[in-house]
Simulated assay, not measured.
Amino acid sequence: MDSAEKKRKLLLGSALIATLIAVVLVGGEDEEIIINTVEPVQSAKSSVDKTKAQENNSEYLDISKLGQRKFNPSAGELFASTTWTPKQPPVSLEEQAAKAAQIAKSSPPSAPTAPPLSFKYTGKAISGNETWVFLAQSGENFIAKIGGKINDKYRLDAITDDMVTMTYLPLNIKQTLTINNKIAGSFR
């Protein structure tokens, strides 16, 4: 055996001896505990008799002797939700207004658009080199040729068999009105 193995066996043996000594010493204390635990059981009968006597003397239990529950504030909320996202600092109304103004300044306003065409195609007439279109809008009838204006808002640009092309003058936007050949007739 080498010296390292002898040292290990010596340490293990001494630990075993120390454990056995501790068991013997603790084993002697158990007898005293049993004797001590027997005495309160015998005295418990006398305390039960005392409480029965107190119950007979008073009809109600004195609640003030019970005490109040005390909760540990470091325990926190039992049913609090947990989230891994960091909390955002509170934002004042002034900061919110400043952000809204900044967003309004940075985003360009939407481009204006022409209103949808509310004209109804009622027919057309061809006379020589000129073509006239008959349109109706809100109970009013309009007759226009290419280059002509309707209500000073629209200009008639082109007329084909399938559609009428107009320009919305306030925004200079071209719009088309499709012609349904089955319903609308043409005049020649």
Results as ranks from 00 to 15, higher is better:
residue 88 Q to P: 00
residue 89 P to H: 01
residue 89 P to R: 04
residue 89 P to K: 05
residue 89 P to Y: 13
residue 90 P to M: 04
residue 91 V to I: 12
residue 91 V to S: 04
residue 92 S to R: 05
residue 92 S to K: 04
residue 94 E to R: 11
residue 94 E to W: 06
residue 95 E to Y: 09
residue 95 E to Q: 12
residue 95 E to T: 06
residue 96 Q to H: 14
residue 96 Q to K: 13
residue 96 Q to D: 09
residue 96 Q to C: 09
residue 97 A to K: 13
residue 97 A to P: 02
residue 97 A to E: 14
residue 98 A to R: 15
residue 98 A to S: 12
residue 99 K to A: 12
residue 99 K to P: 03
residue 99 K to N: 10
residue 100 A to E: 13
residue 100 A to N: 07
residue 100 A to Y: 12
residue 101 A to D: 13
residue 101 A to W: 14
residue 101 A to C: 06
residue 101 A to K: 11
residue 102 Q to S: 07
residue 102 Q to W: 15
residue 103 I to Q: 10
residue 104 A to P: 01
residue 104 A to T: 11
residue 105 K to M: 12
residue 105 K to N: 07
residue 106 S to A: 13
residue 106 S to G: 03
residue 107 S to W: 14
residue 107 S to K: 15
residue 108 P to N: 10
residue 108 P to I: 08
residue 109 P to D: 14
residue 109 P to K: 15
residue 109 P to A: 14
residue 109 P to Q: 14
residue 109 P to E: 15
residue 110 S to Q: 07
residue 110 S to M: 08
residue 110 S to V: 03
residue 111 A to Q: 04
residue 111 A to K: 08
residue 112 P to N: 05
residue 112 P to L: 12
residue 113 T to M: 11
residue 113 T to C: 04
residue 113 T to Q: 08
residue 113 T to R: 02
residue 113 T to I: 06
residue 114 A to N: 00
residue 115 P to W: 14
residue 115 P to Q: 00
residue 115 P to K: 03
residue 115 P to H: 10
residue 115 P to E: 02
residue 116 P to N: 00
residue 116 P to L: 09
residue 116 P to T: 00
residue 116 P to V: 00
residue 117 L to G: 00
residue 117 L to A: 02
residue 118 S to L: 10
residue 118 S to I: 02
residue 119 F to R: 01
residue 120 K to Y: 15
residue 121 Y to T: 01
residue 122 T to R: 15
residue 122 T to N: 12
residue 122 T to Q: 13
residue 122 T to H: 15
residue 122 T to A: 13
residue 123 G to F: 05
residue 123 G to E: 07
residue 123 G to T: 03
residue 124 K to G: 07
residue 125 A to F: 12
residue 125 A to W: 07
residue 126 I to R: 08
residue 126 I to T: 10
residue 127 S to T: 03
residue 127 S to K: 08
residue 128 G to W: 02
residue 128 G to A: 09
residue 128 G to E: 03
residue 129 N to E: 07
residue 130 E to H: 08
residue 131 T to P: 04
residue 131 T to C: 10
residue 131 T to N: 08
residue 133 V to Q: 11
residue 133 V to D: 09
residue 133 V to N: 09
residue 133 V to K: 09
residue 134 F to D: 02
residue 134 F to R: 06
